[in-house]
């Protein structure tokens, strides 16, 4: 068991070895399913020059937005930054390097990276600025562009439940980019709401098998809601 026990006892230990100029993939969509405590720990570490790969970049005062505000991010690879005014400011002023990447291409880049596939062809972005300076190939009469996969020094992931072996289950749409992110980190760190003893999770229900997970920690989550929308009672 010991060799497979992925639990660490502090957020310091969870991100030990994260240093300046590293690449970090973060799971999450908007503020849903983001590894909020691991992000807060990156802020405490004060590391700089990071390349961050994430669908969004949080909001001004929560999630990855706090790393942006502290100027810890040198380059952002993301598909949508609409909610973050500071992001748009740093982008337009040239302070932040940004690689805007179509959402499906971003997901596939991370999936491919984790699966040992260095690049793939997709029709997404052909004939647009995204396709500029990329190799084009025709298959069955349609044109596709070559996109390279992504891996990272660290992947930070938010799960719902996990066992000590690092088998992870996600909840509802908090899944999003998390399972792909978990596969693509040289060191993958998962924080969850609850760690359970091995045997408690149904093997056929596991989303992320423990082989992908290096470190596991249980955290407390604010789970901030970006756009609380309800129907009339």
């Amino acid at each position: 068991m010991a060799g497979f026990d992925k639990r660490v006892d502090s957020y310091e230990a969870a991100l030990a070895g994260l240093t300046d100029n590293m690449t970090v993939i973060a799971g999450g969509f908007g503020l849903c399913g983001i590894p909020e405590n691991l992000i807060a720990q990156i802020r405490r570490l004060g590391v700089k020059g990071l390349t961050v790969v994430s669908n969004n970049c949080g909001v001004d005062d929560f999630g990855l937005g706090v790393l942006l505000k502290d100027r810890q991010i040198r380059k952002m690879i993301a598909s949508y930054v609409g909610e973050n005014a500071e992001f748009e400011r740093q982008l337009l002023s040239g302070e932040l390097e940004v690689e805007l990447t179509p959402q499906g291409t971003l997901a596939e880049k991370i999936r491919a990276g984790g699966a040992g596939i260095p690049a793939f062809f997709t029709a997404t972005g052909y004939g647009t600025p995204v396709g500029e300076n990329k190799e084009v190939r025709e298959f069955n009469g349609r044109r596709y562009i070559l996109e390279q996969s992504i891996t990272a020094d660290f992947a930070i992931v938010k799960g719902w439940k996990a066992d000590w072996y690092g088998n992870v289950v996600y909840r509802h749409t908090a899944q999003n980019f998390n399972p792909a992110a978990a596969t693509a980190g040289r060191i993958t760190v998962v924080e969850v709401e609850e760690i359970v003893p091995p045997g408690q999770l149904e093997p056929s229900q596991i989303h992320t098998p423990g082989i992908y997970v290096d470190r596991l920690i249980q955290g407390r989550f604010e789970k901030r809601i970006e756009k609380r929308t309800t129907r009339a009672a």
């Binding site: 969509f29 908007g30 503020l31 849903c32 399913g33 669908n55 909610e83 959402q103 499906g104 971003l106 997901a107 596939e108 991370i110 999936r111 719902w160 909840r171 509802h172 749409t173 908090a174 899944q175 999003n176 980019f177 998390n178 399972p179 792909a180 989303h207 789970k223 901030r224 809601i225 970006e226 756009k227 609380r228 929308t229 309800t230």
Partner: peptide
């Protein structure tokens, strides 16, 4: 309202009977 259940516009939503949830990879 459930913070773990949102749509692509980041609004809180519900899942109807017969719904499924999955990863971004699967979605695309």
């Amino acid at each position: 309202v459930d913070a773990d259940m949102i749509n692509a516009g980041k609004q809180t939503v519900t899942a109807r009977v017969g719904a499924s949830v999955f990863s971004s990879v699967e979605s695309f």
